[in-house]
Nucleic acid binder design. Structure first.
Length: 363
RNA sequence: GGUACUCUGGCAGAACGGUUAUGCGUGAGCCUGCAAAGCUUAUACAAGGGGGUUCGACUCCCUCGGGUACCUCCA
């Protein structure tokens, strides 16, 4: 998917000791207590509880419908350590068991990012209780504020419903990736704001494939550009680039950024169609285009020198045949080239080619 | 039931209180040996309903309604 690796991939199971230390600290501060079933965090000791999800403590209590665990002092209290003999389980000063669901996130993020860090991400559905509880236990433990900014992403839905295993409407990434490729998926995901839900549909994927083809076309048009006349392109490129940056800086307005990206592509294709683009201009557009693609995680498929030579050779043959009006033979060559996933673009005086990403669903 | 988010033209999706978003789609044209791709151009009553505030509201307030998500130990 062209996703960059993170610096670290910590695992909860490798941090049991840290977790235990963290809990000890909580108990020391008397914000957590051990009971029959586990160690619990005392929500009443954290007055700001509910600040993230904008819930009120008293409303929560009245809304609780699930059976109450009598061993807790307050129904809202949540586990930081849960007793269990079933493996996997670890020994702790309070008894054998395993960490509560929220604790390892607090422990590991504080360990690697510090007591206060900038951005905490996660799905919208985790705001409550998970993130709320993370805040409570972390801030209680460190005494300082946890994440500065919370970025919550919207769910992927299908037919307006959340994709979930229980409904059985899941499309695996592998499946979609094999059918559509990473670029199309990325365009699709970026077409909406990250915080809003996005509805999966083949039609939308298809729409984004069309757009991706435009980008590919533009890219190769620029590579092959060699017209003489020039327009003042730098100014336009800069303007679009700025629009792109501004959009992203404004809370990742990716759709707006994409519209700038496609504006650039349109510009490139337009000039190419009018054969008004010189090498130098093409370079400056291409540089900006590549910059944007890097930011967006898009990538034009690579092409080898060998492939290039082969294609050039085939095109030369085809040109000859076309001049001789042997169109049937020329079309055969075109067909052959197409099978290599190369598409020919006939211009007035010349034929150029572009490599297309292979998209299985594009049948 | 509670809370949050959301409701924009056929579809997707932006925007400062006052200007055409943009893209896809669709129609027409250009280019081409034919295609494909690309380009040009045209196309939308747009604002969930109803009230208000305002000289003016998609943008602010109220209200009603629809949708989605979450509502305590599975990570």
């Amino acid at each position: 998917m062209n996703v960059k690796r993170a610096t670290r991939y910590p695992k909860a199971t490798e941090h049991i000791e840290d977790i235990i230390k963290f809990i000890e600290k909580l108990i020391e501060k008397e914000v957590a207590y051990a009971s029959k079933n586990g160690v619990y965090f005392k929500v009443s000791k954290f007055p700001e509880y509910g600040k993230l999800s904008k819930k009120k403590i008293d409303e929560l209590q009245s809304g609780s419908r699930i059976e109450i665990d009598e061993t807790k002092k307050n129904p809202l209290d949540f586990a930081v350590w849960k007793f269990s003999d079933i493996e996997p389980a670890w020994d702790s000063p309070w008894g054998k068991g395993r960490p509560g669901w929220h604790i390892e996130c607090s422990v590991m993020s504080i360990k690697y990012l510090g007591e206060n860090f900038d951005i905490h991400g996660g799905g919208r559905d985790l705001i409550f209780p998970h993130h709320e509880n993370e805040i409570a236990q972390s801030e209680s433990c460190t005494g300082s504020s946890f994440a500065k900014i919370w970025m919550h992403v919207g769910m992927v839905t299908i037919n307006g419903e959340k994709m979930s295993k229980s409904i059985g409407n899941v499309k695996s990434i592998k499946h979609v990736l094999e059918n559509w490729g990473s670029n199309v998926i990325r365009l699709f995901c970026l077409s909406g704001h990250y915080s809003k839900p996005i509805d999966y549909s083949e039609e939308l994927l298809k729409e984004n494939l069309v757009k991706w083809r435009q980008a590919e076309t533009c890219y190769y048009e620029l590579i092959h550009a060699d017209a003489k006349s020039c327009e003042k392109i730098d100014e336009i490129v800069n303007k679009i680039g700025k629009k792109f940056d501004n959009a992203l800086e404004d809370d990742f307005n990716s759709h707006l950024a994409l519209s700038a990206f496609f504006q650039l592509i349109k510009e490139g294709n337009r000039l190419a169609a009018e054969e008004k683009i010189g090498k130098k201009d093409a370079e400056s557009i291409r540089a900006e285009m590549e910059r944007m693609m890097m930011v967006l995680g898009l990538a034009i498929p690579e092409i080898t020198e060998n492939e290039k030579h082969e294609i050039d050779e085939l095109i030369r043959n085809r040109e000859r045949l076309r001049k001789e009006k042997k169109f049937d033979d020329a079309d055969k060559i075109r067909e052959k080239i197409n099978q290599m996933n190369i598409e020919l673009i006939d211009h007035k005086g010349k034929t150029i080619w572009m490599k297309k990403e292979r998209i299985r669903a594009d049948g």
